[in-house]
């Protein structure tokens, strides 16, 4: 078995298993805590808990105008990185092919040039994220190993992906192997660290939305 076979086979299954089980474990550990029924009367402008949760999940994706003057840099870099990642994952032909092989679902790929630009934007954004964590007083204070590891584990697949798409620097098979292995490293770390925000960011918003909707104080 070559390293590529290993990456495509057992390593992929193991990484998927760890990611799914880890996330389920982390979510279950939180969800199974005793839930206290709120006995307070709802507010005069109250909305339903579910609609409040859903509304907050969506609305928090857009920065509030009153804060934007002070948070513009963070918001811009964050948007660039996440949109870039979405374009790469959902628009890149090889990624669509992978999904098609696994599920049968298929959709048209974006032109290679657009995916290449998105990859570049994502890479630069990730480098800026690291730079800001190292230099901004607040981010330097808050940042820990988890933060840097999570960024690095996101950056490596993007970098190896760009090299792979351009078929440069190293042989195609070698690049493909390291690209797949780097994605698997990301998948393995995902449930344990900050990368789990793919789930918890939305869970956090939903929890707040449900509570504030009952009060009639959704923002």
């Amino acid at each position: 078995m070559t390293l590529l076979d290993f990456a495509r086979g057992p390593a992929l299954y193991a990484a998927t298993l760890i990611m799914v089980c880890g996330l389920v474990w982390r979510l279950t550990g939180v969800a199974l805590l005793p839930f206290r029924r709120d006995l307070a009367a709802s507010g005069p402008n109250a909305k339903g808990r579910v609609s409040g949760a859903l509304w907050q999940v969506v609305s928090r994706s857009f920065p509030r105008r009153s804060f934007l003057g002070r948070t513009m840099v963070t918001v811009t870099i964050g948007y660039a990185m996440h949109i870039g990642l979405a374009v790469i994952l959902l628009g890149g032909a090889p990624h669509i092919l992978l999904v098609t092989q696994a599920t049968g679902l298929d959709w048209p790929a974006l032109p290679k040039g657009i995916v290449a630009i998105a990859s570049g934007v994502t890479l630069v954004s990730l480098l800026l994220v690291i730079l800001r964590r190292l230099t901004h007083p607040v981010l330097r204070l808050l940042s820990n190993v988890d933060d840097y590891l999570s960024i690095l584990l996101t950056l490596i697949p993007v970098l190896t992906g760009i090299l792979l798409a351009e078929e440069t620097l190293l042989p195609y098979e070698t690049l493909l192997t390291w690209h797949i292995l780097s994605v698997e490293a990301l998948m393995i770390w995902l449930p344990f660290g900050k990368l789990a925000h793919v789930v918890f960011v939305f869970a956090g918003r939903a929890a707040l939305g449900a509570r504030q909707a009952r009060k009639g104080a959704l923002q």
Binding site: L33, F35, K194, A203, G204, A207, R211
Partner: peptide, 13 residues
């Protein structure tokens, strides 16, 4: 409860 624990897990720094 689940609410507070979710928030403890959700911080992005």
């Amino acid at each position: 409860g689940p609410e507070a624990a979710t928030w403890m897990e959700a911080c992005l720094h």
